[in-house]
Design a protein around this nucleic acid. Structure first.
Lengths: 125, 125
DNA sequence: CAGGATCCTACGCGATACTG
DNA sequence: CAGTATCGCGTAGGATCCTG
């Protein structure tokens, strides 16, 4: 399984612009990190380095609570914890893909509309 | 065109449980209200009576800003304003339908997982 | 009828520091 | 390594009242 790319999620294309959200801010990204198999906390931190460990843990716990992922602790030193998608969590992958597809197709139109709207406000000829 | 049903959105199934959000809290509901054709402000208020007019206006303006709906003011007394989906707004209908479909299929599993999780916390045998 | 103006609060999220 | 503990802020969104 390939390591996660540090630039897996482009900060220049923040999810704040996307009008669609799965769970909270980082949930969809975490789920995509786990698509290819179980990952350790430190692995997930790499592409999600803009999230503090507190928030990451928070999000992971919420996902676990809702049955989207499993959390497995290995009694080793140093400790190792692995997160893995459940079948339920995997059902979200298709939905996320659909959202991404929508974004690719329609975000340019949305942004153009937003620009046009700003102009009618600031530049009412 | 049929009038909008007052119980179109069940308050007992608040969107807060749904892990998927389109835009802000009321956006997806408004878009669904407009599916069959243009609607007046007071029409939309009926199924969305739990939102204050301020919040409704806010949301409608945001949707207009992003090119999802158009806002048409008729110079009449009393004033009449109609909101209508743009082609861009209509593209969201399919996405919303996909989300609803996901919810119908998977929300029971999610809620069961949530219950089970709570029990392991409050009742650790 | 279709809103605008004000005020206010909960909570999502981040920054920083510390630990079994 | 995989978290926890505190602190704090911005903002979405609600309550209430008012108006062209």
């Amino acid at each position: 399984m390939d390591p996660l790319a540090p630039d897996m999620f482009d900060p220049a294309c923040p999810s704040s612009i996307m009008p669609i959200r799965i769970g909270d801010k980082w949930s969809a990204m975490i789920i995509q990190c786990l698509e290819q198999g179980p990952r350790r906390f430190s692995e997930i931190r790499i592409p999600l380095r803009h999230a503090t460990p507190k928030v990451l843990t928070q999000t992971l716990r919420a996902l676990e609570r809702d049955g989207m992922i499993t959390r497995t602790v290995y009694a080793e030193v140093p400790p190792r914890v692995e997160y893995e998608l459940t079948p339920l969590g995997r059902t979200l992958l298709a939905l996320i893909a659909a959202c991404r597809h929508w974004a690719e197709e329609n975000m340019p139109t949305l942004l153009a509309a937003r620009d046009a709207y700003e102009n009618t406000i600031t530049d009412p000829s």
